[in-house]
Design a protein around this nucleic acid. Structure first.
Lengths: 104, 104
DNA sequence: CAAACATATGAATAGATATTGATATGTTAC
DNA sequence: GTAACATATCAATATCTATTCATATGTTTG
């Protein structure tokens, strides 16, 4: 079916949980930073000027929702978006928001 | 440019505000309900089993973000999604979430 | 094994947010 | 104008969430 129906209340809750995670500026910055390339926690913290602890907390949430994925490389863990699905979604949304919203 | 760059911190905040609004199950249910057809506040409240006050509060937020738009028709006000942009975004996201997330 | 480094976790707190109940505003009908 | 209806707003509260600080876990190097 090309036309989507109203999601069930259950699906809506799932969807809302994803949106809620995306609804925090800090997490969004982390996601977009990791969108370019896999980034270590320390690099994220330093580049985005956040405490290591805070970054780790956010990454845990993002990991829990399977939005990011981490690969250990010696001491560091490099995070990247979980899959193309997620990155496409982010890029799409950014486009949606960046386009001007002027209607009638 | 077809490839999106990392949004500025300012843009990220704007984007996050939109996501935050979408990150509540009640609001999402309202949005999807109004996606099918313009709906009056009372209809929304009755159909989704929410108090009229709550629906009105959420609609105010959604209105403020220009996600919905209301048209008065006699006593009632019918709300619909603000534009195709917004509805497309919702439909896209629903697809994203409904599709299975199985990667490697 | 110990020291150093990188990341994760736990507890605590301040600030935000959803929800409720009561009331106000605005619209139609008499 | 008044009554009835539909929606919006206000105030209060209980819940959630982001952030911080301190500490623990895990990894590498000597």
């Amino acid at each position: 079916m090309s036309k989507i129906a109203v999601p069930s209340q259950f699906d809506t809750t799932i969807l809302a949980e994803t949106f809620k995670l995306l609804g925090d500026p800090t997490r969004l910055r982390i996601l977009f930073f990791c969108l370019e390339a896999p980034r270590s926690v320390g690099d994220i913290a330093a580049t985005l000027d956040l405490s290591q602890s805070l970054v780790s907390h956010h990454l845990r949430l993002l990991r829990g929702a399977r939005l990011v994925r981490g690969n250990r490389q010696a001491k560091q863990i490099f995070y990247e978006l979980a899959d193309k699905h997620v990155s496409d979604m982010l890029v799409d949304m950014a486009h949606h928001v960046c386009e001007d919203h002027g209607e009638d």
